[in-house]
Amino acid sequence: MNNLLVANSVSKKFGDFTALNNVSIEVPKGSIFGLLGPNGAGKTTLIRVINQITMPDTGSVLLDGQPLQSHHIKDIGYLPEERGLYKSMKVGEQALYLAQLKGMSKSEAKTRLKYWFEKLEIGDWWNKKIQELSKGMAQKIQFVVTVLHQPKLLIFDEPFSGFDPINANLIKDEILQLRDEGATVIFSTHRMESVEELCDHIALIHESNKVLDGKLQDIKREFKTNTFEVGLVTNNEAELTNLIKEKFEVSKADYKSLNDDLKLKIKLNNNDTSNDLLGFLTSKAEVNHFNELVPTANDIFIQTVKNS
């Protein structure tokens, strides 16, 4: 079995409002799965269904091949977007309480907490109250509580919000390490650069329907337009541009560069390879910059949402 989590045509209605319409996803074991979508698309509802907070009207969810049951709670670690902690409770007590709710014994929870607190260098917060901590500090505690019981499936909803770049990096490394240790991660965010960085699979939900899913790499391949960005050194820009226009589809490009090159976007003709283009260009001018335009997750997101 290669998929840790499978959702089979899950639907959920709230009154007249359809939050999820026949959504199916497959999350491979050991992957980081990006769950994307505009605000209000139904991501949170799907996550809540996986967490058994909301029951689906129809459809089923399988974890490790078994339909979800209440004992699966301890196999899932969930960091919701709307998160917080009891303000007047001490950090240590609170972490112990939440760990015990996940089914850990008190002594086990203590040992694991010590390990994590040392790892993230927050050991001296144990007896502080949450209200004495900054938002970022509280977020760290929350992260620890989410991963403490070593769940098979981790669900992070906007995990980096509230973190400074240093801490965001720290958390990102921890997530990657957890993945390497065998955990599967579902990752929901609006920050496309983190999707780019972390996810190997994505699913895009738009207006309660899944509109796209698969390996990020495959999707990118699907979306690529065979367009190259080139920088050319020339004395006569107009003449060179016209020359290229005779053979290829050309538009202006804009990228950051140290030189005052002629910057163009050139689309390949159907049967051409990149070498054909490069050969053609080198015969006309000095090539300073040559780069295939790979669609970013951001492009894919916007394009898909706009088209559907």
């Binding site: 907070i53 919701p80 998160r83 917080g84 902690l85 303000k87 929350q142 509580v145």
Partner: peptide, 17 residues
């Protein structure tokens, strides 16, 4: 209400009925 305003509820509710 405190649990709602402190936003801890969803954390708790993912482990408890």
């Amino acid at each position: 209400i405190e649990e709602k305003t402190s936003r801890i509820i969803e954390v708790i509710i993912s482990s408890v009925k």
